[in-house]
Design a protein around this nucleic acid. Sequence first.
DNA 1: CCATATAACATACCCAAGTATGATACCAAG
DNA 2: CTTGGTATCATACTTGGGTATGTTATATGG
Lengths: 202, 202
Amino acid sequence: MAKKRTAPRTEKGINTRQAIFDTAIALFAKRGYDKVTIDDICDKVGVTKGAFYNYFESKDQIILEEFMRMDDHYVKVAHDIADLKSSAEKLRVFNREAVKLMADLGVTMMKVVYHSQIAPNMRRPYLMDGRRSLYKITNELIKEGQEKGEIRDDIASEEMAVMLINCFRGQIYHWCLANGSFDLVGTCDTLFDLIMDRLTPR
Amino acid sequence: MAKKRTAPRTEKGINTRQAIFDTAIALFAKRGYDKVTIDDICDKVGVTKGAFYNYFESKDQIILEEFMRMDDHYVKVAHDIADLKSSAEKLRVFNREAVKLMADLGVTMMKVVYHSQIAPNMRRPYLMDGRRSLYKITNELIKEGQEKGEIRDDIASEEMAVMLINCFRGQIYHWCLANGSFDLVGTCDTLFDLIMDRLTPR
DNA sequence: CCATATAACATACCCAAGTATGATACCAAG
DNA sequence: CTTGGTATCATACTTGGGTATGTTATATGG
């Protein structure tokens, strides 16, 4: 068991995989994720399910792959804010930009991500993978702030990072439930102010 | 369209509905939600799918119905803490007990709830229904605190309640992803302290 | 007391995700 | 050059949630 879904080796394979991915993303954007079947995608590409499942382990894996590219953006943002004065301010801006990225991805995609990640058969969810840049950067910013005395250090930076991220994830989850009917970035800004003032030592 | 799924009218109907519900809960507990098919449930009860879908609109509706009973507990908790001195303290205890209730429900059930509520075809998710006792009580406690000057009032109580609940929901979501492998109540306690100190006016 | 509506199911079916398996083509080693 | 392994797909199937529709029993109003 445990299918071997390796990356494509041949030129043809690479093209096929990419075609499936691109077509899927395009169809999702046009008709909505749940209105597109895997057969729809395969028909348009000109292959069959056999090809699809040779490269992707499920339908939502396509969305997740798109979502995973977010990590590159996080790194970029982290680089852009490197010259800000205070660590607390870095954290604020980083968080704001991260939330903006989610908002830009859109409700539909975020729904699929949050839906599939908590599915019963999910083994090791990507969302809580500690190797993600989101966690690493948040952790480093907090640790940096703690060392500079800008952020209280009675809680481990790792623990604080996870807690903080979870808070915002809760807002995004709610934003998905509400079909994006409120200003996510504004809400998260407000929340950040609320929490951040207390993260700093008295 | 829009099937009429009304409550049972006859004695027989009431019994059947209850038998389906009880059997489903029992099977879920024994074999796990995703290892139990609707046909399994019906077989054990001795009815067919027709009966099932006459009373429930989906499989996870069973879990949700169990989850909805939580509202009664919220009310009970709210009653129990009525004689606490400060509103902030009431809020703290209420929150703590609410999180405990979730932890008691268990990872499996909470997973199903959070999974199904964000499903693509979900219209009006119960989780964000403003009529839930969770929202009403949290809102009232905050408003009470604001009036007594214990909680800052530069943010509307309704908005603050939703934000607060979402923060904890994020922790619970993460707890589900982690398959309950950390102390949810402890984490939420820590988080509450973090946020709450800042909710109070300077 | 009879007509009619509808609750309470059963039967048969659809749909789409995912699987099992098989065919072909290609590459690499002997 | 040939043989074996494997990447790349196609075909056919399974599975399970959900639907459409039909049949029967029962409650209710005239």
